[in-house]
């Protein structure tokens, strides 16, 4: 991978050409906040928290660091009045959208947002529309049971037609990756509840613990070729 020389906050850095600025910053211990970026899933540019300013020649512009490719001679700064304005605005807006989210409130306060000046929403739950759940379901799990619906202020994450999804395998990866804990999932008496659907949990052949939905095991068996017999034993007992 060819290397390029750039600077972040005055610090000279060598990075892979085309590597995203956010990753370059983090690799060099320069903190940049973000909510919709995940190393395994890549970037989407939704949350706008990771904005930084880039100077090239005598032109300064604001860029999305999670999507901006490192190039020779880039001079980036991660702190400025404008950057602070955007980050504070984003966090205040998200706090107003998701007043129940402790994570957003914490992040907002840490950026100097003390209060919300808007009427707080009560219908959005804790969902900030970062899309991590959808991307996980699509590219990690490979089932695409989740998607977006609508546009603008009514946009939301949902299963098709807001009904229990036929393709969902109940794996819970979406709930696991959700940064605010919006996605509700609970296991009770050998049954997992998620996205309005119930999944029978498989009991471990050895220890008897309900460790994964049967559907998920069958899906893994089908896609990986591993035998169901082997999969029916929980990872701890294997």
């Amino acid at each position: 991978m060819p290397k390029v020389n750039l600077s972040v906050d005055g610090k000279k850095i060598q990075a892979d050409k085309g590597a995203f600025l956010l990753d370059v910053c983090r690799d060099n211990h320069i903190p940049v906040p973000s909510l919709c970026h995940n190393e395994a899933l890549g970037s989407d540019g939704r949350c706008r928290l990771c904005v930084v300013e880039v100077r090239r020649g005598n032109r300064t512009r604001m860029v999305t660091s999670c999507l901006f490719p490192a190039a020779e001679g880039v001079e980036a700064i991660t702190q400025s009045a404008n950057i602070a304005l955007v980050r504070k605005t984003v966090l205040e807006l998200l706090w107003a959208r998701c007043p129940e989210s402790d994570e957003i409130a914490r992040l907002a306060r840490s950026h100097g947002v003390s209060d919300v000046r808007y009427q707080k929403d009560n219908d959005k739950g804790k969902c900030i529309l970062c899309n991590l759940c959808i991307r996980t379901c699509e590219s990690v799990v490979g089932v695409s049971a989740l998607g977006l619906s609508g546009k603008g202020p009514v946009k939301k994450v949902t299963t098709p037609f807001d009904e229990p999804s036929e393709t969902c395998i109940g794996c819970g990866a979406c709930a696991f990756v959700c940064p605010t804990g919006h996605i509700q999932m609970w296991d009770k008496e050998g049954v997992r509840n998620i996205w309005g659907r119930k999944f029978e949990m498989a009991a471990c052949a050895k220890c008897g613990t309900h460790f994964a939905p049967l559907y998920q095991l069958e899906y893994i068996s089908k896609t990986s070729g591993a035998s169901m017999d082997r999969l029916r034993t929980c990872p701890d007992c294997r």
């Binding site: 959808i134 695409s144 049971a145 998607g147 619906s149 098709p160 393709t167």
Partner: peptide, 12 residues
């Protein structure tokens, strides 16, 4: 096409 993707288009 996954139904979730078709539903995205249908509601967008």
């Amino acid at each position: 096409v996954p139904l979730a993707k078709g539903y995205e288009v249908a509601t967008f």
